[in-house]
Simulated assay, not measured.
Amino acid sequence: MGVLRRNLTAYGFLCAALCCFAVFAWYPMVREFILSFQRTNLIDPPTWVGLDNFKAVVQDPAFGTAWLNTVEFTVLALICGYVVPFVVALVLNELRHARAYLRFVVYLPVMLPPIVAVLLFRWFYDPGPGLFNQILDLFHLPGLAWLDSGSTALISLVIVSTWMNMGSATLIYLAALQNIPPELYEAAELDGAGVLKRIRHVTIPQTRLILLLMLMLQIVATMQVFIEPFMLTLGGPENSTVTVAYLMFQFAFTYQNYGVAGALGMMLMVVLLVFAAFQLRFTREDKA
């Protein structure tokens, strides 16, 4: 009876979280699935159109470009946003002084509202008085059209995204590193292992599950990138920064075509589910 009472109490505390999750996560997904098979302006009664919305998405000229840009952004963001936080966490883990202060400095960008961070970088990227071009001018280097050139616009968005989000990843990696038994490092040092060998044979194997989890989370997050292209480039120049999420926004709120936007959202969700399935499989194999 006591066990049942404790379980009921636990479920009672979970009810609020489950209700919020159902209203703000599950219901929108179900509504989007239904919407992807309908034509509606959200005012008049919807009409069922079957797969017409999916055909319209695939036939749109920006469809392929959006997916290519999204994949390229994801790859670049993983190179920067996946590797850099892990390296920073390794450095912080080795420090003996000012560790708490540096952790605060690394995490500070996460505490800024995303819009504030993006507007800050808009000034950094300004081709005239912007900070980055001023730094280049100090070294007598020519300034760059950071957001106005198709060759630099996407990587500029990656830099913004990495700076905004690396704090959380760094702290997660740092927590995982601090849970590694120090005896393993001592044994590796006695065997003559250097820093790189200790990282390869001790650090990475001991943090494998966290690395796989963070890889999945970063893929899911970067493939849904929207704020950076919306606030900085509006998909330009020449559609070089149009992403899948930004194209969904255009379908829904520019063209008032909510059914097509829902169809594109379903495609993105299926792709992310495939990545999640692979991640779960690798995690189970690693545990076994």
Rank of each mutant, 00 (worst) to 15 (best):
P109S: 03
C20K: 12
A56Q: 08
R5C: 05
T40L: 07
V3M: 09
V58K: 10
L177D: 02
G235F: 06
I227R: 03
G262Q: 02
W48R: 08
A25F: 13
A176P: 03
V71T: 13
P237K: 11
P113V: 11
G236W: 02
M267N: 10
R200T: 03
A145L: 15
G12Q: 04
V23R: 02
L92I: 01
F73A: 08
V260I: 10
V49Y: 08
V83N: 08
Y173T: 09
R31N: 07
T241F: 11
L213F: 15
H140R: 15
I172E: 04
L264I: 09
L120G: 14
A261G: 14
L76E: 09
F249H: 15
L14G: 07
Q134H: 13
G130E: 07
L119E: 14
M214K: 07
V244S: 11
G167A: 09
Q279L: 04
Q224P: 08
G167I: 05
Q206Y: 10
Q279G: 01
F124S: 04
F253P: 00
L68P: 03
I155G: 01
F251N: 00
L215N: 12
N179L: 07
T203H: 01
A252L: 03
F13D: 07
L4R: 14
V23F: 14
R96M: 06
W26E: 12
P28R: 12
I172N: 03
D286L: 13
K287R: 14
M223E: 04
N133D: 11
N7W: 07
Q38M: 15
A276H: 03
A187W: 05
F278L: 12
A176I: 12
M166C: 06
L119K: 09
Q218V: 03
E186Q: 09
T170A: 11
L211P: 00
N133H: 13
M269C: 12
F132S: 04
M248Y: 01
A261S: 15
Q59G: 13
R281Q: 00
F230L: 12
R6I: 11
R208Y: 03
F24L: 10
H97M: 04
P181Q: 02
Y246L: 15
P182Q: 13
W67E: 06
F33I: 07
L51R: 12
G81C: 15
A62L: 12
Q206A: 15
H97F: 10
L112F: 09
A252G: 08
L184H: 00
R198A: 04
L138Q: 09
M164T: 04
V118D: 06
M164G: 00
L280D: 08
Q250D: 06
D44K: 14
L18C: 04
V3H: 07
I227H: 00
V116G: 04
L78T: 00
F282R: 00
V110Y: 14
R6T: 14
R122F: 08
M1D: 07
V88A: 09
T222K: 04
D286Y: 07
L8A: 14
R96P: 00
P109I: 13
A10G: 08
T241S: 12
V270H: 05
I199W: 05
Q218I: 07
C20M: 12
L268G: 08
G262F: 03
Q279V: 00
P46A: 03
P229D: 13
P109E: 08
W67M: 13
Q218R: 13
F86P: 01
